[in-house]
Computed example of a mutant assay.
Amino acid sequence: MTTQLSRRSALKLAGAGIGSVAVGATALRAGTNGVFRAGSGDPYDLWHDWAGMSGVDRVVGAGVLACNPHNTQPWRIAVSGGVIDVHSDPARRMPCNDASGREHFAGLGCAVENMAIAAGPAGFTPAVSLFPDGTGSDLVARIVLAPGGSSRDRELADAIPRRHTNRGPYTKAPVDVSRLPAGIDGADVRWVTDRDRLGDLYVEATEAIVADDEQSAEAFSWFRSDRGDVDEHRDGLTLDGQGLGGLTLFAAKMLPAQSRADGDAFWVKATREVHTATAAAYGVITVDDVTDRAAQVTGGRLLARMHLAATALGLGFHHMNQITERIDRDRATGGPDTFSGRWGAILGRPASTGLVSFRIGHPERTAGLSPRRRLADVTTG
């Protein structure tokens, strides 16, 4: 007898932490859906090739490998000799899930910081200026590379090709947050002590996002459900990046792609039963004003540094911005603001200072690689 299993069922099992599923004739999808090529092939080559790169290409490559919300890869990069201009790509904005643009510009800040970190060990001294043409310009940052490197950030630079978002379960082992960066000029990290209350708020915000048809549809449009989508787009979220157990991931890839409703249900379940249930600690990047473009980029620079430092320590790191996405969405639509008050109470400071947030812990599983666009596709000059 052949046992039939929908991808929805596989993902439900994954959300409950069950990694063994039965599969039948749907195994025919394995070859075409990348079951045996996870993390390999052209969309992943930069992760494997970066360590062997040198010069300006190595610095730019570090920027393309930077963490960024939803893996939208929001950058366009112009290179002229030792000058790197990092531009915002407005086509990669998510106006429903990121109404204020905070995640978009924080992601650009992540790219800037990755390049600044990589520059020293690559033999350069970087000078970074934000919005040299003003905050109304798409030119977010200019990085001028002068000869003369430094080994100061070598440990963080070495972590660049190993840094991945880990959405899987974490162990119960505590995390010594004192070993992580406390902040940079213009941005700080605030560690949340009331984890239960924050976890409940994350779940509630996730439920609100999936109940909002426009937010749900926009988020789902960035999910690459099979290898063909990955090869075509080279961005977005993938099954490999969901933190599934090996057999569950194998089954999910062989089965027909889940619907948006199924994906939303899985996300809520995973948020409740994996992400918030196993977080060892929550951190929030805080700035003076989350609507200020320069502050958004600066906060992103700290976010990148935090993620690389966590990677160097062997910690899992997972960006979780559902609460702030709902705050911005309610403000943009004129709906009731149901999250700012509680967000501010958890932070112990105004909600307008909490830019982006994350969970960390000791991961039970190795994080999957995310696809990346080619340098030639994002750079000019």
Score class of each variant (00 low, 15 high):
P43F: 09
N97V: 10
S357A: 03
L13R: 13
P126Q: 08
I160D: 06
Y44A: 12
L355V: 06
L302T: 00
A279T: 07
G120S: 05
G348S: 15
N114G: 08
Q296F: 10
D264R: 08
M1Y: 15
R93C: 07
G52V: 02
Q322N: 13
V79I: 00
A205G: 03
H318S: 14
M320I: 15
R142S: 00
F250R: 03
T32M: 12
S178Q: 02
E155N: 06
G19T: 04
G246C: 07
G63T: 05
S129N: 01
S259A: 08
A66S: 10
T72L: 13
G199A: 12
Q258K: 12
D235M: 06
G241W: 05
G316P: 02
P350E: 14
L237Q: 06
L347I: 15
G148I: 06
A294N: 01
G120P: 03
G314L: 04
N114D: 10
L145G: 00
V86R: 00
K269C: 02
G101M: 04
G109F: 12
T125H: 06
A295E: 01
G228A: 15
D262S: 13
I117S: 01
L13Q: 11
F339A: 03
V189P: 03
T338W: 12
V274H: 11
A257S: 14
T324D: 13
V83P: 01
I117M: 07
G136M: 11
F124I: 00
A270S: 15
R197T: 14
A159V: 00
A10K: 00
Q322A: 14
R359V: 05
F266A: 04
R154V: 11
L13K: 13
R92G: 01
I346G: 14
G228V: 10
I84M: 05
W47T: 01
L145M: 01
D42F: 15
L313F: 04
G300F: 06
H87C: 01
G34P: 11
